[in-house]
Design a protein around this nucleic acid. Structure first.
Lengths: 147, 147
DNA sequence: TAAGATAGTCAACGTGGTTGACCAGATAGT
DNA sequence: ACTATCTGGTCAACCACGTTGACTATCTTA
């Protein structure tokens, strides 16, 4: 049951997050999008670098950017210093979604702490940190799901 | 960090499982396949019912069965009592993969217990059980990842 | 300046999902 | 017994998200 429970815990949190985000004006935001917005970051990036951060090909990253651009969460701009590069950065809407995600995650963690106790939640986090390889999902990406 | 750690914990377990399954003669088995084999069960089922168990459409379930049949893990047979139904059941290879998954999951849980202590692992499971809705991922499906 | 590395894109494809349409077979109601 | 409806499986078209390989444009470096 351990693996299923970990997955179910993650999905519960993510489902709750997206239900709340939909309520707050972001119904099109899908679970994967949060990872992408986080990886783009407030400073922006390029499709190639985004691919590296997410651990996928530059082509896959490019397609994902296309979709987020179509949804109004990202925009592309030319790099004045390098005509090959297209800078990818968040729009105001993207930034809004990202900020709300962080807030909602904080609230959800508080809800877990209210039920289980803050120590138990902290213990789960400590235990998991000990069991997962440090580079899984590049948890060192600045600001990864700040919540 | 909580949601990411839960996901990373799950992925670590699943990655370890599939690395070991590949070593034991099942390199084509993908994470999603375990769920499907488990949902088919030793008694077999039909595409429609499989879809219900997995929470996807009957068409999606049918396609997934196609792939597992092509890999030699499932087979289809006519239902003598109902000419519309096509029974889906595991082949010997499917059963072997499922059994090995259960064994490896047990071993991985033991490894976690060896590092964290059996009480901590049990505490994580208890806490998660309290936080996830009982029907998430239909955990009540008989034999769900027995490990 | 010629050669090589890098950024982005296009095309083809695989996997896992969706809807809608449709046919064949089972079942219920009159 | 016959018609109407429900159900199981499949086909087609499509979408999200990933892959590789090939190609162009541009920057970097020897």
């Amino acid at each position: 049951m351990l693996p299923l429970l970990l997955l179910a815990g993650f999905r519960t949190l993510i489902d709750d997050l997206h239900a709340e985000l939909a309520r707050q004006g972001h119904p099109e935001l899908r679970p994967a999008h949060g990872f992408v917005l986080q990886a783009v970051g407030v400073d922006g990036t390029t499709a190639s670098e985004l691919g590296q951060r997410l651990g996928v090909s530059k082509q896959a990253a490019g397609k994902t950017v296309d979709r987020l651009v179509a949804l109004g969460y990202l925009e592309r701009a030319d790099d004045p210093a390098d005509a090959r590069r297209k800078l990818v950065r968040m729009t105001a809407r993207g930034l809004d979604g990202l900020r709300r995600s962080a807030v909602v995650f904080d609230q959800l963690r508080d809800r877990w702490a209210a039920t289980l106790g803050a120590e138990r939640v902290a213990a789960i986090e400590d235990d998991l940190r000990r069991m997962v390889p440090t580079d899984v999902f590049r948890l060192d990406v600045p600001g990864w799901f700040a919540g």
